[in-house]
């Protein structure tokens, strides 16, 4: 355990920018994003993949960053909560909807919801209530009782339609696309 750990060079595109990090094989992607890339908006709530607070978009699809080794996603395109707002700083429809609907309280789980819903609305732009609930079904929130989060999904869909054409995240390869 005293030999220096081997480090691996990891190249990622994070929120549109090329980033690199030198990490040991065991470095979790969540820690890499938070502590190596200093993007602390992605939060860690359980480190065993149940709470969803650490959800980021990997090539456009929501994944738990605490269940991935950074080295294993070398070359990937990652979107974190910091990458959701527009280049002009404007809140994305999902972010805006959360503000309008009081979809967050302590805000700790929020980034995971925002990334998840951002991808979810790409797949289901006009979600039914069932789809809206399914969309956020794998994220834990201890504060809100989810009522306003579900409301925010619907409101975000509305806002997206209002900003017709201005997609929240540029189309990236989806879960069905194999790299």
């Amino acid at each position: 355990m005293n030999e220096a750990e081997q480090v691996h060079e990891v190249r990622l595109t994070v929120n549109g920018a090329a980033r690199t990090a030198s990490v040991p094989a065991r470095r979790l992607l969540s820690d890499c994003i938070r502590h190596d890339l200093h993007l602390t908006g992605t939060h860690v709530g359980c480190e065993h993949g149940v709470c969803g607070a650490c959800t980021v978009l990997l090539n456009g699809a929501p994944v738990r960053s605490c269940l991935l080794l950074a080295v294993s996603v070398d070359g990937a395109d990652i979107t974190t909560v910091e990458g959701l707002a527009g280049p002009d700083g404007r809140l994305s429809p999902v972010q805006q909807a959360f503000a309008e609907c009081h979809g967050l309280q302590c805000g700790f789980c929020t980034p995971g919801f925002l990334t998840t819903i951002t991808a979810g609305l790409q797949a289901a732009p006009e979600p039914t209530d069932e789809q809206a609930r399914e969309m956020v079904g794998g994220n834990l929130c201890r504060c809100t009782g989810y009522q306003n989060i579900v409301a925010a999904v619907h409101r975000a869909a509305e806002l997206r339609r209002e900003h017709e054409g201005a997609a929240a995240v540029p189309r990236r390869p989806g879960p069905g696309d194999v790299r």
């Binding site: 355990m1 081997q6 040991p24 065991r26 820690d31 080794l69 080295v71």
Partner: peptide
């Protein structure tokens, strides 16, 4: 809750 040291290959 952090993994132990790991060796790694990516064929």
């Amino acid at each position: 809750m952090k993994p132990p040291p790991l060796d790694y290959s990516r064929p």
